Simulated scan of single mutants.
Amino acid sequence: MNPKHDVTGVILAGGQGRRMGGCDKGWVELDGRPLVALALERLAPQVAEVVIVANRHLDAYRRLPARVVCDAEAGYHGPLMGIYSAMRAAATPWVAITPCDSPALPHDLVMRLAEAVGDVDIAAAHDGERLHPVVALLRTRLADDLHAALQGGERAIRRWYTDHAWRPVDFADCPESFANLNTEDERRRLEMRLQQEKGNP
């Protein structure tokens, strides 16, 4: 698998942002830039193209250099619906999903997932302590199965994963790369990390 040809990168930005007062987290600023722009900058060099799944502020998202799709069904059905919507839009055999509020993901994230996936259908990042199910590589052909699961009321990513051949991928060497932004303390820590990266390219 060559991620630059076989993988569509996906930024999930369609959530309700409940833990941050219902804001659209893609447009929360970190180090003076929107989270979605930082996520796009990190993911785009690793994949064939990037799709952003968003459900509001669509005009703003469409000004970014990426394709924008909405959830296939309205009503904020969670990340599984975002994954399904991206799979439906992808022209590649694989999708690499990431959340919009994890701007420091590894520069080699997709390659490491691709190298580890082997003969399974899903590879999800594990930071040595916890699984990150919304940072994963999935076969696009799972779209029909996922649609059926959604129609049956499934909303839990981990539970749907266990219905398929999947494996965790070890990223214990860089657990801090999977930090996301839900509080002001997390914002400060992420800003410090990004500033350190700028000073140590």
Rank of each mutant, 00 (worst) to 15 (best):
H5Q: 12
V7G: 05
V7M: 01
G9A: 03
V10S: 06
A13S: 15
G14L: 09
G15L: 05
G15P: 07
G15S: 10
G17P: 06
R18M: 12
M20R: 13
M20N: 09
M20V: 14
G26P: 10
E29T: 14
V36S: 11
V36K: 07
L38E: 12
L40D: 09
E41H: 07
A44H: 13
Q46E: 11
V47Q: 06
V47T: 11
V51T: 10
V51E: 05
I52V: 14
A54T: 09
D59R: 14
Y61F: 13
P65H: 03
A66W: 12
C70Y: 02
A74H: 10
G78K: 11
G78T: 11
L80D: 06
I83Y: 11
A90C: 08
A91N: 03
V95M: 06
A96T: 09
I97K: 01
C100P: 07
S102R: 14
L105D: 10
V110T: 07
R112S: 07
R112T: 08
L113E: 03
A116R: 04
V117G: 00
V117M: 15
D119Y: 01
I122M: 00
I122C: 00
A123R: 02
H126V: 05
H126N: 13
G128V: 00
H132S: 02
H132C: 03
P133C: 01
P133R: 05
V135N: 04
V135G: 04
T140V: 01
D144A: 14
D144F: 04
L146Y: 01
H147L: 13
A149F: 06
R159M: 02
R159Q: 07
A165H: 05
D170W: 03
E176F: 12
E176Y: 07
S177R: 13
T183F: 12
E186N: 14
R187N: 03
R187Q: 12
R187W: 06
R193G: 05
Q196P: 02
E197Q: 11
